[in-house]
Design a binder for these strands. Structure first.
Length: 878
DNA sequence: GCGGATCAC
DNA sequence: TATGGTGATCCGC
């Protein structure tokens, strides 16, 4: 959250006022503090003075304008909605709402635990001098937490320290000590695990706990099991029920003077009427230095908070509710050091929701709040009232989410943490404009990232760099290679080229950067990992000098991989298509397919590639002996021929279609070479995984008519896209696969798109939407590796690194091609994507194709964590 | 797949 | 003087 958000965020401000009131009520502040602090107006003024005219502010204004534009477009869209459309939407939405209502589950008790001002509290705990002083954890440039004392001055998390200092000159800024916070966090988590071994930690200071099961068991627990002795010292542990701990230590203050006193009686849930009143119990038992907790949810949470405080000397706030969404909101209600419960009945939920500002809900951020506010929606009740309108203005994901909120629904189970999807490092610095320094920093970041990756044993295929210029404009550039990378060198090889492209593009103007980041994603799943490990297809063997050139990419189980052409063509992005065009230009040549020669030659880059590859192959010309060669272009083994003859073949292949007439032959040729290799156990094994792990995938790895789409895209122009789709439809996957593969050839395939056996994995893989990498080299000792694209000798003997280099070179060629093609260059500030997006959408209102599937079951982030309490989503227009 | 945007902590 | 880092998701392209 940034300062502007703090400033503009009325809800949060209300919340903080509420907190302040609470602080006064519970007497957390000393007398002086009560007199101190700033009023809202003054705070805003100071922040404004500090921020106005800055580049940061300029960018904030720019972003604000974009949001306003989005809102304007939305309003225009709204104006076009007819009452009939609205009525119809109303019916459909209500039907869905009824379904949701029907599936309402109130049987779980979810607790959201939130440590109060965590980092700041830890620092205060460990340094008594900081007590009673306004402090914040962070740096001059950014604060992560402030204590409640500092908040009275408007000092907040995510505020730059220098502004905080203006608000509160006596503010003490403590540098963060994450190791310490982690250690404390671990202590808290140990406690939480007692109540739910599958609790879900959201960060160091936040977690969800599902105590449903615990509650069941607890009902039969004897009092002894719910009894805790009050620890007043800080040396001995009091973490097990019934365990006697040390007696009162004179100088130690009672640890929890405030515990349980913060929540006004009216906020305390009545709980089980048959239970002993907690306050009474507390007063009674505290004299005996022990305390017994009841068996209700509220008692459990009090116990949790008690134990946390006993163990860490820190307070926590908690929310109890039937789902995560509500629990989270609840934990904020009586913060700090308080708890709040929504009883598990529909009425209680709806009463709570009624006036709840939507901004309080996790997932509704500043922008969403503003957009909904423009529609007159501030509270959840209003959100519900406008549900029909929302279904017409927002995506299905969004309005489903809104409907959930407005009905008080949320996840009732805590999803296990899914697999990590990306890992990144980024750094902000004072302006760097020199390219060398930028590369150097980028390299450092790659090293850091590689170290982090190594800790988790991760490798990925997509490298993304992030650049933020001195005007705070952010852009990301990504490149995906066909085999996983993980070392600093590999990552940098890719990142460097991405960076270079950006630098080159702005030349002669330097990139004036204030941040560089590097991210790796595209981690293979387990199956893909197996494939990747075992599949080394291409190789360059010094023994027989065979240059094999095939590619293996991990199979995807994803259906998208084998989409029918129609779907595929819809799914493909502009960039995909551009990429495919080039991709296929090369690949077609490798396959020696019959394609329009002219289209191949329109690609200047292709020409360069051919030339370079030819040149590279000449490096082998120092031998006159006959060997078994595999052509790097058509992938076919050329039998025992002289190098000269082999080179002639390669040249011919490189010249493209001229020699390609016999695709039937070539397919057989390749198939037979595979057989030979299997028999003779030579090094040209075609992906072990092909035969083993990927066997199941193989069945799916039929060449679909995706190929034909791609080919047509290459050969034709845009105007025949429709024709392609139609054509492709005729030639469906079933049709293709139903044909006997052995005899399958062009004669059987009227579209000439299936030139090879369907069993031929290598060629099948070409049909996939994989990044460009036509071949991989196997390591050979004493061999100079020359990149066939840039024709430069690569110093490394690391094969992966070399392959990465080739990938990068190829990708770079594509990028440059793209840039030449595009009227609007990729890294120019785009003409407000949102506004163009939106303007294009307006007419789509009410068109059936774009209407959300209203009866579709709601699911949050299907891809990863089902039932994840995170509801982050973007708001957009249909 | 890519890039921009949003969100949470 | 000066406004963070990490991870995730969604959408349009």
């Amino acid at each position: 959250m940034d300062s502007t958000e703090e400033k503009n965020d009325s809800t949060k401000e209300k919340n903080d006022n509420y907190k302040d009131d609470l602080l006064l009520r519970v007497g957390l502040n000393d007398n002086k503090a009560g007199m101190e602090g700033l009023d809202k107006e003054k705070i805003n003024k100071i922040i404004m003075e500090a921020t106005k005219g800055s580049r940061f502010y300029g960018n904030e204004l720019k972003k604000e304008k974009q949001v306003n534009q989005r809102i304007e477009n939305m309003m225009q869209q709204k104006a076009q909605i007819t009452s009939q459309q609205l009525r119809k939407a109303q019916l459909q939405v209500d039907r869905f709402a009824m379904e949701l209502e029907h599936s309402r589950d109130l049987n779980n008790t979810i607790v959201h635990i939130d440590m109060d001002a965590f980092y700041a509290a830890v620092e205060m705990r460990d340094n008594p001098e900081l007590k009673d002083k306004p402090i914040a954890v962070g740096s001059v440039s950014m604060l992560t937490t402030s204590n409640y004392h500092a908040r009275r001055f408007g000092v907040r998390a995510a505020m730059p320290g220098f502004i905080a200092k203006r608000l509160c000159p006596q503010l003490i800024i403590v540098p963060p000590n994450f190791d310490k916070y982690r250690a404390v966090s671990r202590e808290v988590k140990e406690i939480l695990a007692d109540y739910d071994p599958n609790f879900m930690a959201m960060s160091l200071d936040e977690a969800y706990v599902n105590i449903t099961k615990h509650l069941e068991e607890r009902q039969n627990w004897p009092e002894d099991k719910r009894k805790y002795f009050i620890k007043t010292g800080n040396s001995l542990e009091n973490d097990k029920p019934g365990k006697e701990v040390n007696k009162l230590h004179e100088q130690e203050r009672s640890i929890s003077p405030l515990l349980f006193e913060d929540s006004p009686p009216d906020l305390q849930s009545p709980g089980n009427p048959f239970q002993v009143n907690f306050e009474e119990l507390n007063n009674l038992q505290i004299l005996q230095n022990s305390i017994v907790f009841g068996t209700s949810a509220e008692e459990v949470v009090k116990e949790i908070r008690f134990r946390i405080e006993q163990k860490t000397t820190l307070t926590a706030s908690a929310g109890i509710a039937p789902n995560t969404m509500l629990a989270k909101v609840c934990s904020d209600k009586n913060k700090p050091n308080g708890q709040y419960q929504i009883l598990p009945n529909r009425q209680a939920v709806m009463d709570f929701i009624k006036d709840l500002p939507i901004r309080k809900v996790s997932g509704i951020g500043k922008v969403t709040e503003k957009m909904l506010k423009a529609l007159g929606i501030i509270t959840c009740t209003e959100l519900y009232q406008q549900r029909a309108l929302l279904s017409l203005l927002f995506s299905e994901t969004s309005w489903h989410y809104f409907l959930h909120i407005s009905l008080g629904l949320g996840s009732t189970q805590l999803a296990r943490d899914g697999e990590r999807k990306s890992m990144s490092v980024e750094r902000t610095f004072s302006e760097i404009s020199k390219a060398e320094e930028q590369y150097s920093l980028c390299q450092e970041l790659c090293s850091e990232l590689a170290q982090d990756l190594q800790k988790e044993g991760l490798k990925g295929r997509t490298v993304t760099i992030k650049l933020k210029n001195v005007n705070f404009e952010v852009k990301t550039r990504a490149s995906t290679v066909s085999s996983v990378v993980s070392t600093a060198e590999e990552i940098f090889a890719i990142a460097k080229e991405l960076l270079r492209t950006e630098i080159d593009f702005d030349f002669p103007h330097p990139l004036r950067l204030r941040l560089i980041g590097v991210r790796l994603s595209g981690f293979p799943n387990e199956e893909e990992k197996k494939c990747q490990q075992r599949s080394i297809i291409g190789f360059l063997q010094p023994g027989n000098q065979a240059l094999s050139a095939t590619r293996c990419t991990p199979e995807k189980t994803d259906k998208d991989q084998f989409l029918k052409p129609l779907e595929m063509s819809h799914k493909k992005s502009f960039f995909d298509k551009k990429r495919s065009e080039r991709n296929w230009s090369y690949q077609d040549t490798f396959k020696c397919e019959t394609v329009d020669k002219q289209s191949l030659q329109t690609s200047q880059f292709f020409q360069v590639l051919k030339k370079r590859m030819s040149e590279n192959l000449e490096t082998l010309e120092n031998s006159d002996n006959c060997h078994i060669f595999t052509c790097p272009v058509c992938f076919r083994e050329q039998g025992s021929i002289s190098l000269e003859a082999f080179n002639k073949h390669v040249d011919a292949c490189l010249d493209g279609p001229s020699i390609s007439g016999n695709s039937k032959m070539s397919s057989r040729s390749h198939a037979s070479s595979t057989e030979v290799n299997e028999k003779e156990n030579v090094h040209d094994f075609v992906s072990v995984c092909e035969k083993q792990d990927c066997e199941t995938h193989q069945k799916n790895a039929k060449i679909t008519s995706v190929d034909s789409v791609e080919l047509a895209e290459t050969t034709g122009n845009q105007s025949n896209t429709e024709g392609v789709d139609a054509l492709s439809n005729k030639h469906s996957e079933e049709e293709c696969s139903s044909l006997p593969s052995k005899s399958f050839n062009m004669e059987h395939c009227p579209q000439n798109c299936c030139a090879v056996s369907l069993e031929n994995e290598d060629v099948a893989s070409l049909g996939r939407n994989e990044p460009l990498q036509p071949y991989l080299y196997e390591v050979i000792s004493d061999q100079v590796l020359v990149c066939p694209v840039c024709n430069l000798e690569q110093k490394t003997s690391d094969l992966t690194l070399f392959n990465v280099h080739v990938d990068v070179c190829l990708n770079k060629g594509i990028i440059q091609e793209l840039r030449r093609d595009k009227v609007n260059p990729v890294n120019q500030p785009k003409e407000s994507t949102t506004s163009t997006d939106n303007s294009g959408k307006v007419q789509k209102i009410g068109t059936k194709a774009n209407r959300p599937g209203l009866m579709t079951k709601y699911s949050t982030s299907k891809k990863t964590k089902p039932n994840s309490p995170r509801h982050t989503l973007d708001i957009f227009f249909k």
